[in-house]
Design a protein around this nucleic acid. Structure first.
Lengths: 142, 142
DNA sequence: ACCTGATCGTTAGTCAGAATAATTAGTCTG
DNA sequence: CAGACTAATTATTCTGACTAACGATCAGGT
């Protein structure tokens, strides 16, 4: 059994703080943090139900619903009944949503990108290596 | 100017999700997430004012105050007037606070540690290299 | 010696983003 | 075809952050 010393605590603190900072610097867009995230998933992975979307983001369906409702209101996302299963609603990113997401992401990332610019290529490399590990740590269940 | 491609978005998503997971798995203690964090800072860095404590955690004084008030109520932290500056109050971790924090951290980290155990030594190494970078990204101002 | 402006802790009020529990509607199975 | 299950939704709550404002204290300049 490996000996991690302070790694769990350090990792926890680093992630907590960075997450706070990212949320704080989210002022550049009309869409909230989780809304952009939801839209991005629909863009990347195509149409899906609310359940699937919530699962991918690692939150509960009611939590996801709030974001989705706003996105539908703005007509960035369309909702249509599932062809064969009347309980399901298929969520699809609209043309308009497609148009705005890149721009929104661009502006939202200004703060983070500025900070990344201050890093050395080696540090960027370390971050890129760390990313898949962080995603694995963040998986639900397992 | 380096070309980061999807790094900002990926980093944002990884950090956001892991942070959510960490908060979710906080059921093992009577203290909330930020309360343990504040106590840990007082343990690691000694007595300080509310201002300093808030600054170290990267949040505003009113936000920090809530945690501190609870910690004082539980007698895990003591408050005493500053010797020369009547406006300031020095916060100090008590014997009792000292006693409980390690145990709390131990239990709270169970979930995270189990996941870290599943990583290879190389992956642990990458994480350890990434930590200081994440902390730097999380700094305020700059 | 005394204003003036800054700082510290604090209170009040607000907001976002998550959760749980319960409701409604549709589907499937035995 | 009745009961169990599943999907979306609603209602409610909680946590953790924020800003604004206030009283007390301090420090510096005239």
């Amino acid at each position: 059994m490996p000996e991690f010393g302070p790694l769990p605590n350090s990792l926890r603190r680093a992630v907590t703080r960075l997450s706070r900072q990212l949320r704080r610097n989210n002022d550049f867009t009309e869409l909230s943090f989780p809304q952009v995230s939801a839209l991005g998933i629909l863009l990347a992975h195509g149409s899906m139900t609310l359940q699937e979307l919530a699962e991918r983001e690692g939150i509960t369906p009611p939590s996801m619903l709030k974001s989705v409702q706003r996105l539908i209101e703005l007509e960035y996302v369309g909702k249509a009944p599932h062809e064969t299963d009347g309980r399901k609603q298929l969520l699809t990113i609209t043309e308009r949503g497609h148009e705005v997401i890149d721009d929104i992401r661009e502006r939202r990332n200004e703060w983070l990108r500025a900070r990344l610019d201050a890093l050395s290529p080696e540090e960027i490399d370390v971050l890129e290596q760390a990313l898949p590990i962080l995603f694995r740590l963040a998986e639900r269940d397992v």
